[in-house]
Lab assay of single mutants.
Amino acid sequence: PDLGLTQLFADPNLIENLKKNPKTSEMMKDPQLVAKLIGYKQNPQAIGQDLFTDPRLMTIMATLMGVDL
């Protein structure tokens, strides 16, 4: 199971919303991170391994779920 990750990354406004959010806007200036996020739309399971190697993803996930870290 993808634990709902498919829906989190399926939002067509995902990148724009993250660019507008004060907690994630600075991160979204990294083209490699943006490319990763776009890739998760097609393969949400890929985030599982990346969560352990890129701490920014935890902040992004929390933001998408509405959790304040």
Rank of each mutant, 00 (worst) to 15 (best):
K36H: 04
Q45V: 09
E16K: 06
D30Q: 02
K29S: 09
P44N: 05
K36N: 04
L5W: 14
K23F: 09
P31T: 10
G48P: 12
F52I: 14
I15T: 02
L8T: 04
L18W: 01
A35N: 09
L8D: 02
N13R: 08
N43C: 06
I60V: 07
Q45M: 12
Q45I: 10
L18A: 02
G66R: 05
L14H: 02
L69F: 06
I38M: 14
K41I: 15
E26L: 08
K41D: 04
K41T: 15
L57P: 00
K29R: 10
P44C: 05
Y40Q: 02
L51W: 11
N13P: 03
I60W: 01
D11V: 04
M58H: 11
T59W: 12
A10R: 11
F9W: 09
P31Y: 06
M65E: 05
L51P: 04
I60Q: 01
L64Y: 04
T59A: 10
Q42H: 12
F52L: 15
Y40D: 01
V34L: 10
E16A: 09
N43V: 03
E16Q: 09
Y40F: 11
P55N: 09
P31C: 05
P55S: 11
P55A: 11
L18P: 00
I47R: 04
M61W: 13
L37M: 04
R56W: 07
D68M: 02
D54Q: 01
P44I: 11
P55F: 07
K20Q: 12
L5A: 06
N43K: 05
I47E: 03
L33Y: 03
P12F: 04
P22I: 06
K29I: 03
K23L: 13
P12K: 06
K23Q: 14
A62L: 15
T24K: 00
K29F: 04
L57Y: 04
M28Y: 01
A10P: 02
I60T: 00
T6G: 14
L18S: 00
L14S: 03
A10G: 11
D68T: 01
G66C: 08
N21Q: 04
V67Y: 12
D2Y: 02
G48F: 15
A62H: 08
F52C: 09
I15R: 01
L33E: 00
K20M: 12
T6R: 12
Q42S: 14
D30S: 03
F52P: 08
V67W: 15
P22E: 08
L5Q: 05
N17G: 07
L3D: 11
P1C: 10
I60C: 02
V67E: 14
S25K: 11
M61E: 01
F9D: 01
D30M: 01
D2H: 14
P55D: 09
T6W: 09
A10D: 12
N17H: 11
P12C: 04
M58G: 07
L57S: 02
P55V: 10
Q42W: 05
L37Q: 00
Q42L: 09
